[in-house]
Design a protein around this nucleic acid. Structure first.
Lengths: 175, 175
DNA sequence: GATGGTGTAAAATGATCGTTTTACATTGAG
DNA sequence: CTCAATGTAAAACGATCATTTTACACCATC
């Protein structure tokens, strides 16, 4: 595994468990088994490293979302939450911690959110056979986001509830 | 206004805009117009101050949620988001930043979440005239949480969507 | 008019922050 | 063989972290 991959993987775990600001560079270098000089040569800066972590996570997340129904989407989210999640959306957490002050982080967050929203819009078109249904898309987005956030303190049942709610909402548009 | 109220109010604003860890004690003292000695005499520690901020915010939020229908609940959330919100749930942000390591913060977060969940459960009973409907309650919780989180990047429309979705879900239980 | 409580200002605490630099070892390609 | 690249270890950078301490002012009450 090359250095950047190792660094990003190790950093993601630390950021996820302890927060971005609370995780110092020494923890990151130690965890990746590299010197700080090498870290800066590859990652550029701490904010750039955070952006890289978010970028990789987005790619990995997107791979899980390669499904063709809303139901499968929420089942994918359930799998994700079981394996990786439970601590909320790492993108929104990064955004919140940095106050939106770092452009590279903001960009990574918005790109991820746009990707998920696009996927949901695509699936809603497939399921309803309508060219667009903005209200329904927005509702599914809220359920998706809510399942992720509520899972922090209510566990997997949040994702199950979101999946059931989405099914109910879709039902009305399939008459 | 007494010292603690002034301190907590000023701190809440700073924490909300810039994050908890990123906000140093000097910013807090300067913003409240008090010395660090006074801050520690009243607040105890930074984590205790964060817990106090969350406690006050919970009380203020609870006052807004004194409604008697699910629809009014989401309208109250809409008002809140317009006036105070837009940056996500400050409780979950605190939890995420501290990694759940501070017991006083964890307690404040869980107390808040329990209060909101109880309110939702109460309203669902009123609206459905059933003694309990755990699935529906869970779905409303997810919508409530999702509206708050999605509003960060999608604006008020998330809350409107959540309110509409909740109405649809409730409808099926009123037949 | 001394006392105790409550405040400020400012310095000191030792640790840790993100980042850069210095000095040195290894390695693959010309 | 040499050059350039790429890595490490370790120190230094100045800034900032949360917290405590020292020294002093105000003010109400006994």
């Amino acid at each position: 595994m090359d250095i950047m991959s190792k660094l990003v993987a190790a950093s993601e775990a630390l950021f996820d468990r302890h927060g971005f600001t609370a995780t110092g560079m020494d923890k990151l270098t130690k965890s990746a088994g590299i010197s700080s000089r090498t870290l800066y040569k590859h990652a550029g800066s701490k904010n750039a490293l955070i952006a890289s972590v978010l970028g990789e996570r987005d790619k990995r997340f997107a791979r899980r979302l390669e499904v063709d129904s809303i139901d499968a989407l929420f089942k994918a989210l359930e799998d994700w939450a079981r394996v990786e999640g439970g601590r909320g959306c790492l993108f929104l957490r990064a955004y919140g911690e940095t106050g939106g002050d770092s452009p590279e982080i903001v960009e990574a967050v918005l790109a991820h959110k746009a990707r998920v929203a696009d996927k949901i819009a695509e699936l809603v078109i497939v399921e309803t056979r309508q060219s667009d249904n903005a209200d329904l898309v927005e509702q599914i987005i809220v359920l998706f986001e809510g399942a992720t956030a509520a899972a922090i303190y209510r566990g997997e049942q949040s994702v199950v509830a979101a999946r059931m709610a989405a099914a109910t909402l879709l039902e009305r548009h399939r008459l």
